[in-house]
């Protein structure tokens, strides 16, 4: 069957429908047929409601502890605001929540600074979960490096390795939520604590770091050699303890599956 009039161009139809789904722009209604039981607006609403529900579910999945901490109603309000502010631009729903931490650092939510930290931490856990894998360096490989070459040794870290400084007890909040226990009240420590997030095998881990280990790890990510680490560690430990301290970090990183390559200059 054909109609005498030219139909609206495809893009124009899509823009109108999308404007309804995103903002409730009612121009779309004139383009949609009603049936004997359902009018055009109700039919458009099926898509508009489905859109919000799907995105809400994605955020609930990725920010379980934020949701548990503020409760379902407040989380829904947060999600509504975020959905309006950051329409999804990625082909996968997996990345929809990537801007939620920064969204939480502005406006009314900045009065609850633990939310920004908790969301940032949860997002890093997600990043570590499905980051690329890589073959790990074995402790034996380290032992085979001649002592004279150690100062020039550089390292590549596993693609899942993430670092974050946390002033609030958000790791404990997340832990409680994952164990289906009531989350503790947000509590601020006097100084920010450095944390490490990574995946070993298929399991995601996190642990707190001493300031000198955190600084060393950050230097390694910038390309520092073992010798550079030793120089830097003089800020924290006596000169005669520096090499042992750096070697201790390195052994632990290798055992924990953080190191994927050793480079010799």
């Amino acid at each position: 069957m054909g109609l005498s009039r030219d139909p609206a161009p495809l893009r124009e139809v899509q823009q109108a429908i999308q404007s309804y789904v995103l903002r409730g722009d009612r121009d779309a209604e004139a383009r949609v047929l009603s049936t004997s039981r359902v009018d055009a607006r109700t039919r458009l609403d099926i898509y508009a409601k489905g859109y919000r529900l799907r995105l809400l579910e994605a955020l609930e999945e990725d920010f379980r502890a934020v949701r548990a901490l503020i409760g379902e109603v407040a989380f829904q309000r947060l999600a509504e605001g975020y959905i309006d502010a950051h329409p999804s631009a990625h082909f996968s729903l997996r990345y929809f929540g990537q801007h939620l931490p920064s969204y939480l650092s502005h406006g009314e939510y900045s009065a609850s600074p633990w939310l920004f930290e908790l969301a940032s931490f949860e997002w890093l856990l997600g990043e570590a979960f499905d980051a690329p894998g890589a073959t790990l360096v074995s402790p034996d490989a380290l032992a085979s490096v001649p002592p004279a070459s150690w100062p020039d040794m550089g390292f590549t870290l596993h693609p899942s390795v993430r670092r974050i400084e946390l002033a609030w007890n958000v790791t404990r909040i997340r832990q409680a939520v994952e164990s289906e226990e009531p989350p503790p009240a947000p509590e601020r420590s006097e100084v920010g604590i450095p944390w490490l997030v990574w995946r070993q095998g298929l399991k995601t881990y996190y642990r707190s770091l001493e300031p000198d280990e955190a600084a060393s790890l950050d230097r390694v990510r910038e390309g520092a050699t073992f010798g550079n680490l030793c120089e830097d560690l003089c800020r924290w430990v006596a000169e005669d303890e520096v090499a042992a301290r750096a070697a201790g970090f390195l052994r632990r990183w290798v055992t924990d599956g953080l190191v994927t390559a050793v480079r010799l200059a």
């Binding site: 995103l22 489905g50 990625h90």
Partner: peptide, 25 residues
């Protein structure tokens, strides 16, 4: 179907208008 326009992804399977233009497109 189509899933969005203007770099937005609605993450839904949106129906197309069944036109000659859409067939060619």
């Amino acid at each position: 179907c189509w899933t969005g326009v203007g770099a937005v992804n609605l993450h839904d399977l949106m129906p197309l208008p069944y036109t000659e233009e859409a067939v060619r497109h």
